[in-house]
């Protein structure tokens, strides 16, 4: 079945795929392409993945097979703030479960869910390599170390405040 290529991918990503096609084993860059997509959009959409498949000359099932295999890839949209609580060993023994509970209670969502206002999603990760300063939480790209359950409301409020300042700037 031949479907028409819908042009939904940003130009940089199309260009990157074109470069990959000139190299040996172009399909080996699939994971790199998906990383770029997720970086830009926060998650992978069906249309994007289908277009990647066509441009990279691999079956669509191959792309979705890879996207679903790796935990890092998300197939659902995330909140503006992606909160990730480290549940690696060092964080676990330093009480990461209590941090996670505090976020659950404060946001009213469970793991892999997003708040109704679309602001916060809650996830976990397995070690960011900052174990020496456990427990660790990331909010988008920022890493917070030695977090206590008491700090959780404050972290959330700070994120909200950041949002307000950036929005008033715009």
């Amino acid at each position: 079945m031949i479907t028409e290529t819908k042009n939904t991918l940003p130009k940089e990503i199309c260009d990157f795929i074109d470069v990959c096609l000139t190299r040996e084993h172009p399909e080996s860059y699939l994971i790199a392409v998906l990383h770029k997509l997720q970086q830009q959009f926060g998650y992978l959409t069906r249309e994007h993945m289908d277009e990647v498949a066509q441009r990279l000359h691999v079956p669509a099932s191959f792309v979705s097979g890879v996207a679903t295999f790796y935990h890092f890839f998300r197939l659902q949209p995330r909140g503006k703030f992606s909160i990730s609580v480290c549940l690696g060993t060092a964080c676990f023994v330093k009480g990461a479960d209590k941090i996670l509970d505090a976020f659950r209670a404060e946001l009213g969502v469970d793991l892999a869910e997003t708040t109704k206002d679309g602001l916060f999603s809650l996830d976990c990760t397995r070690c960011l390599g900052v174990c020496g300063l456990a427990p660790v939480v990331t909010i988008n790209d920022k890493v917070y170390s030695q977090v206590t359950p008491q700090q959780v409301p404050d972290l959330i409020n700070r994120a909200k405040a950041d949002l307000e300042t950036t929005e008033t700037k715009v």
């Binding site: 084993h25 080996s28 699939l30 994971i31 998906l34 935990h71 890092f72």
Partner: peptide, 20 residues
């Protein structure tokens, strides 16, 4: 780049992952 799969540290899995 890896993509959050512990098993990819295993050498045969790692090679598959490099192959995309």
């Amino acid at each position: 780049l890896g993509a959050g799969a512990f098993v990819c540290g295993e050498e045969t899995a790692l090679m598959r992952s490099i192959e995309g």
